[in-house]
Design a protein around this nucleic acid. Structure first.
Lengths: 190, 190
DNA sequence: GTAGAATTTCTAGTGGTGCTAGGATCGTCT
DNA sequence: AGACGATCCTAGCACCACTAGAAATTCTAC
């Protein structure tokens, strides 16, 4: 029994090691630099061990993304709870979201852009993404008016996401980024 | 002289053939199915000829994307000019944008998501993307109020783009898609 | 303590990718 | 006809994600 548990513990530890290594690699050099070879070398194991933990490279990306959701949720929560009034809270949460996307672009991509098979946001979603979405929703709630809260939050989320991805992809000039954000948030805090 | 021009004409024709084949392939099976081998086979040439026309696969994607921008611009224009009043025009243009993204998802990705090195939207952008953006701007203009028209259009664009990509990536449920779009457009046609 | 069983890990390979060097082939001009 | 030049293809590179089967390690039981 003890041997079994020790092995499981070691396995779990190694799995965390793989995820951490993948995250370091991706944040430093982007997703195109994350190959199974480099990742295996980084954790000092051979490639096949990766496949004993994860179904494939996509599953590793998904695991990294889930970590990202936890971070994002924490940052959004901090922004929301330290604001003076509801309007400021929404502005701060929006700014925190944008800052996260700018600070960790590759991680953000894994969470929202890359086609990893995470369930959609909503009640049935995994805990971390759900929590991140919940922070956004609570920031919107006081200003929702008579509109459906969930849908309104999703719409604002779409706006933030679109601005971030278009800007980062070079489709929008960086100049004016702040003002676009303010414009968007303004339309949602009437 | 005539020989020269004939060769140039044939070259241009073949280039169009390549782009058309790439577009057919990508719209039928998605970007992961577009490999240089398959594309070369499709146009009945060997791989290296692709590289005599384009710097690499990314350049082919970019060429396909530019075609897409022309299509999008035309569809947005049709939606805008056939609407009765400004509010309806904005609603129709937004719906046309969403319909385009839903109808040609892979093409849309090449245009807006994939990292092809197109210059950013704005005055210095290539003609087709600029035209598409212009249609959006003209739809926004009558309802811009005192906000900066360009920034406001970019913000709305971000909202549309975000909703489309999040929905298509499985982060938002399809249910409620229409209502989210309506919510977004409503916030921009005050 | 040691032989055998079970599990874990690695070596080596498959079929794919984007891309390219160098030689064969073709049309063109003298 | 024969040489020149542009054009195109064959063959190959280095890399990718992923996997089968051998090797090594760990545990079990005598």
């Amino acid at each position: 029994m003890s041997i079994q548990t020790r092995r499981e513990r070691e396995r779990a530890e190694r799995e965390r090691l793989i995820i951490a290594a993948a995250r370091e690699l991706v944040e430093a050099e982007g997703w195109e630099a994350v190959t199974t070879r480099r990742l295996a070398e980084r954790v000092e194991y051979s490639q096949p061990v990766l496949y004993s933990h994860f179904k494939g490279k996509d599953a590793i990306m998904a695991a990294v993304a889930v970590e990202g959701f936890a971070d994002l949720a924490a940052e959004l929560r901090a922004a929301r709870t330290s604001a003076a009034d509801p309007r400021q809270a929404l502005a701060d949460v929006g700014a925190a979201y944008a800052a996260f996307a700018e600070r960790r672009p590759a991680l953000y991509d894994a969470m929202f852009t890359h086609a990893v098979d995470l369930p959609p946001a909503g009640p049935e979603a995994p805990a971390a993404p759900h929590a991140a979405f919940g922070e956004l929703r609570e920031a919107v709630r006081p200003l929702a008016g008579e509109d459906d809260l969930g849908l309104l939050t999703e719409t604002l989320w779409g706006g933030l996401h679109g601005l971030m991805t278009l800007t980062r992809g070079g489709r929008l000039r960086h100049e004016g980024h702040e003002r676009r954000l303010a414009l968007l948030l303004g339309r949602f805090s009437r």
